[in-house]
Every structure is written in structure tokens, then in C-alpha cells.
Amino acid sequence: MLLLTCPYCGVSADETELSPGGEAHLKRFGPGSSDEDFEGYLFMRHNQKGVHFERWRHTYGCGKWFLAARCTATLEVFGTYSAQTPEHPKEIIAKIQAKRSDWSLT
């Protein structure tokens, strides 16, 4: 039963108030893309044991999607941030590396 802070409401929301949305920061490939790119977009996921960037929706709250960096093994949450963030935020990467020196974005 996770606890994630919605960056819009500032509410620390119970997992039962949220809906999960899978991996974040995917790049969409549409018509004209190669089979390989499209396959990667549609099916290939990091499935990380470790820090995972993921999508959540504050379904029973403000209804907004947000993104979270969470370790799938320890459940440590390194931060939540707006869904309108195209790249992995630098401050979150710094926060992860401060705690895990050997970690890098894959």
C-alpha cells in the first residue's frame, strides 16, 4: 500500500486513491515508424528491479496524471512530478545518485 504525493494537490495519497499507468517517459512512435521502433514503444519496458520512472493518476483526487521515481525493490520514492515533464528531471536523478552512487539512467 504505497503512499505517493500528488504534485498538483500536494496530498499524500493512499494507493487506493491512485491508478497506476506503467512506465513513464515513453516516446510515442506513430504511422511511418519502423517496426522496431514501434515494437519498442508498444511493448518493450525496462521492468526495472531498482529505480523505476512510472505514471500514476490521482484518480480519486484531482484526476491528474503525475510521474514518480520509485525503487521497485525497496519502494523508496525519490520524488513525484508533473506529467508534462518530457525528460527525467535532473534534481530527481541527483537525488537518486546521492543515495546510490552507482546508479545511472538506463
Binding site: S19, G21, R28, R55, R57, T59, G63, K64, W65, A83, Q84
Partner: peptide, 13 residues
Amino acid sequence: HAHMEDWLQCEWW
């Protein structure tokens, strides 16, 4: 509705 909001918030903002 959730599907629409997903695309509006996460892809075509």
C-alpha cells in the same frame, strides 16, 4: 474519459 485525459495530460499537453 480517463483515456482522453491520459493523452491530453501525458502526450499532447
